[in-house]
Design a protein around this nucleic acid. Structure first.
Lengths: 289, 289
DNA sequence: TTGTAGGCGTTATCAG
DNA sequence: CTGATAACGCCTACAA
């Protein structure tokens, strides 16, 4: 007769809230809302709610969020680090405690915490290899903070292929930046001044790749004839830009689904086995690259 | 000495969880993730957590979500209805109880529940007026389910302006559909067969407007020369498409912020005054319209 | 099998 | 003002 049990009382005694905590850098970036969508769907299927916090790409906010969530309201924490996150002590103190943690997409490699990752290294390798095959020799790359595996792995892939082809790594072609439009444009402008000039740009995301294409068009630089442009993530906007954006599809939604699935498994079994899962992606060729 | 109070026990006795429940149709649609971002930021500032559920534009899922949230885990509910939602009995039974409810963006007008809205009527009026001034006489419009105020209000605005200019409303130019690409393309194809032909399309969202532009280009229909295209929402992708999309900027993030702010006020004061707030928007002119 | 007491970690109340 | 205790609503263990 329509009795609604009080979840609070229930949770208090069972010590489980059936709620996942999620910390992501932003909700206004397609890849993150897509991953969150994957997290949410898998969680809902398993009867878990999702508590969402955004760090706004700010390290301090990420720390505050962790504090705010780690007070018995969640059964597990999913975290995708800020692009500027370089130290991870704030997370370390929670590792191995009652509440399991899973890092996804942007992870710290030197922490004993499970990870769900895009195939950044293979992606960067595939893209670099393809560009070299197309005749590019001065390939610029946009990366995030050096502490993040996403930057490290993509750089590894890039480096591997250049070395294989005996192309010297030029530090001037590597930009470690955040996502802001100004920083991206500035990096591109610096590259345009170089001689010998660059002939390709691999960008950290589709959105910045699209902005790069737009900027190059403004500067009357032909894409892909003069400079080929590649993105990461295969977002809708890449289909729309002219020339259409080539991109490494990181299988973004699947990353969220797997992260959700892994943490729920760890919650249910009570075993925090160190897991590291790389989600395969694939290259999507369009006009720009 | 680093004592962490147990929020569950605290909530059990104080009867407040400092958590907002949010039900939105999707996380993979820019406007919704943008509104959620606004909700989340305001909530975080006020010390509230956000519990997020997606209905995937499915009426039954929306009902299930409401059930799942209304069990003492949240202090207030924010809801944006499914595009197919036509009956609202599932919500009605929760109205006026302990937990306040605020509808946002897509709302039911005949329910005694507070609303935060885009200025759909004024937006449709402004766009229609502009198109008529540009010489358009056969203006097609894409709407959602008839039960939603978003459809009703936009139709009202459209109708008002056509009547003012003594242009007869042609039912064949009005499409009530959901967001799927196929439905949009089908509606456009039907319009293209009409004679006299259409000279403008007002779309329900920027994403579908962009898809309409792409489809028209495929069909070799010149935009804006033959058909002008307008969107709603002013998303990033509209800046990228060629020709760039004209759009009515509904101030999406602000809608989320205001909804969040209103429900928190209702929670804190304990007063569920019936509020209806329309967030003003503005027309953004680009090449397509 | 069915019923009841105790405890989860707080806050609030009521004596002292 | 301070300190003990009931109550929040549920689950579980144990007793009948």
């Amino acid at each position: 007769m329509n009795y609604q049990p009080n979840m609070l009382a229930q949770s208090l005694v069972t010590r489980s809230t059936h709620t996942l905590g999620v910390i992501i850098p932003s909700l206004e970036t397609t890849i993150f809302s897509t991953m969150l969508s994957g997290i949410q769907e898998v969680a809902a299927l398993a009867g878990y709610r999702v508590n969402i916090c955004t760090s706004n790409e700010k390290h301090e906010t990420e720390i505050a969020n962790i504090q705010a969530l780690m007070n018995n309201m969640i059964d597990g924490l999913l975290i995708c680090h800020t692009i500027q996150t370089n130290s991870f002590e704030h997370l370390r103190i929670h590792i191995g405690k009652r509440i399991p943690i899973v890092q996804f997409y942007r992870v710290a490699d030197n922490l004993p915490v499970s990870q769900i990752l895009a195939d950044d290294e293979a992606g960067a390798e595939a893209v670099t290899e393809y560009l070299i095959k197309k005749g590019c020799r001065r390939i610029a790359i946009v990366l995030g903070s050096k502490g993040l595996s996403i930057s490290q792995k993509r750089f590894m892939g890039y480096q591997n292929v250049l070395q294989k082809h005996n192309i010297k790594i030029d530090d001037k072609l590597i930009a470690h930046i955040d996502f802001t439009l100004e920083k991206v444009v500035k990096a591109v402008d610096n590259w345009l001044k170089l001689k010998p000039g660059i002939d390709a740009i691999i960008s950290i995301s589709d959105k910045s790749a699209v902005q790069i294409i737009r900027h190059l068009k403004e500067k009357k630089v032909a894409v892909p004839e003069k400079i080929r442009v590649f993105g990461f993530g295969n977002e809708f906007v890449g289909e729309i830009v002219d020339p259409a954006l080539s991109s490494f599809d990181t299988n973004t939604k699947r990353i969220g689904e797997e992260a959700s699935s892994l943490i729920i498994e760890q919650i249910i079994t009570g075993k925090q086995n160190l897991t590291k899962k790389i989600i395969p992606g694939k290259m999507v060729l369009r006009k720009s690259g």
